[in-house]
């Protein structure tokens, strides 16, 4: 008897498996075939070898603090996650005009009642036009001073925000030069580091 050599199982023949796991035949509605095929294509598991290369992430030189626009209930896994779309950038917040912004340090208590104390840092924008009641850095007789600018008609004077200090009214030969307008105060609350 001759062995029947035709037909039957041959090594390596047939359709190649696309999924690295057992599969199962099932009936699906015709109208859904396109979607199901697409689903399967998209959800093909990526194996580790599929990642071409792992690149190093450059660490950032500045810190961005995520700003949550929704209140987050403690203990509940963040439903606010989808709402985080902005980060806090202190430069963007405090400096509107970078080229014209300077930082100066305070060396007197004359503005104490406005919340400005010794060693506080003031952010000064020189591009702003000083208006009535702005806190300004002024130049009087070539000395810097920080005061509140008071504009009354065509007359200006400088108000100290501390009763121990005198307001500055200019005499005829004095000239008032506004060096810049104070926009923010940086005040350290932990005095002992």
């Amino acid at each position: 008897m001759y062995e029947n050599r035709k037909g039957g199982y041959r090594e390596g023949a047939g359709r190649k498996a696309i999924y690295n796991e057992p599969t199962k035949t099932m009936r699906v509605p015709i109208s859904c075939i396109v979607e199901i095929k697409k689903f399967l294509a998209d959800h093909k598991k990526t194996t580790f070898n599929d990642i071409a290369s792992i690149t190093l992430i450059n660490p950032l030189t500045f810190k961005r603090i995520p700003l949550a626009l929704e209140k987050v209930a403690a203990g509940f896994p963040s439903p606010a996650q989808d709402y985080i779309d902005k980060t806090l950038d202190m430069n963007e917040h405090l400096v509107k005009n970078e080229a014209a912004t300077f930082v100066v340090k305070v060396a007197s208590l004359s503005m104490r009642d406005a919340g400005i104390e010794i060693d506080d840092e003031l952010i000064v924008d020189r591009s702003l036009e000083a208006k009535h009641e702005d806190i300004v850095i002024a130049l009087i007789d070539n000395d810097f001073t920080v005061k509140r600018l008071m504009v009354e008609g065509d007359k200006c004077w400088l108000k100290a925000e501390n009763s121990d200090y005198d307001d500055i009214h200019l005499n005829d030969c004095q000239e008032l030069l506004i060096w810049g307008v104070v926009t923010f105060v940086i005040k350290p609350f932990r005095k002992h580091k």
């Binding site: 300077f102 930082v103 100066v104 340090k105 305070v106 060396a107 003031l122 810097f144 920080v146």
Partner: peptide
Amino acid sequence: NYFKWDQLMSVK
């Protein structure tokens, strides 16, 4: 250097 934190311009 008035652009360093420890050397800022000082105002009275």
